[in-house]
Design a protein around this nucleic acid. Structure first.
Lengths: 124, 124
DNA sequence: ATAATATATTCTTTTAATAGAATATACAAG
DNA sequence: CTTGTATATTCTATTAAAAGAATATATTAT
């Protein structure tokens, strides 16, 4: 029942290993369906199907050249993922400045000091 | 059958919207299971299950504090995703320098000249 | 030992994604 | 119009993930 409900978000699309391979193959340039299938040792229908998914979430674009369909990575869409990851990392990195949680625990536990050992970071 | 074959890679783990919410909630600091469940309006068992998945792929760490389990984002593991995205973007950005693919097509197709219109490339 | 709280696990059901095989469509060439 | 090549789609079967309910385990307090 894959066709009736295709992955709609970029994250789901990229969760598939074969689709990541396709994207990687496309990163260095435009390829036709059969080129991709040959290169990655996938069957043609599977390749087409994965490409449809990638197209639906905007990770690839297509253009027609005769009877071929040339697929191309759309790097812009990768930013959806990148932005999310970076936002998380921002928060994670700046978590040392927010001692709220830590202080909460300090009030509750006898000696949670060991938790901080080994970080070596300037935590304040 | 989710428990028997849990997602092993970071990409699959992150494909789940609720797990992304959990990670986002954890980005600003450590939280207990119930804190997360309350905050995100998830049920406790679901929350635990998602956390196990995240733990298995290394995206979160746990420590025990009394009867609570405090989960914490492991930002390092996010780099797996980030590195992959950035590698792709690198290639995508530098794709203009690599005309190999384009030249390949020139050799295979009879008159793909129309394809080149507007490019202004010297093709032989 | 019993009760209360916090979290984890198991089992079942439901839903969604993937593969495979077969077929359809599109375009080009003769 | 028939053939060949490239790609897309449909249908079915399989597999995997997720939700839900119930229960188990762990820790603390009484």
């Amino acid at each position: 029942m894959a066709r009736s409900t295709p992955p709609q978000d970029v994250f789901t699309a990229v969760a598939e290993p074969q689709r990541r391979q396709i994207l990687t193959a496309l990163a260095s340039g435009e390829r036709s369906v059969n080129e991709l299938a040959d290169l990655l040792q996938f069957r043609q229908p599977q390749t087409s199907k994965h490409l449809q998914v990638l197209k639906e979430v905007g990770l690839v674009d297509v253009r027609s050249l005769g009877q071929q369909r040339l697929y191309q990575l759309n790097g812009e869409r990768l930013k959806v993922i990148q932005d999310w990851v970076e936002a998380l990392e921002q928060l994670w990195t700046s978590r040392f400045k927010r001692l709220d949680t830590l202080l909460e625990h300090l009030q509750q536990t006898p000696s949670p000091v060991e938790t901080l050992e080994g970080h070596g970071d300037a935590h304040e």
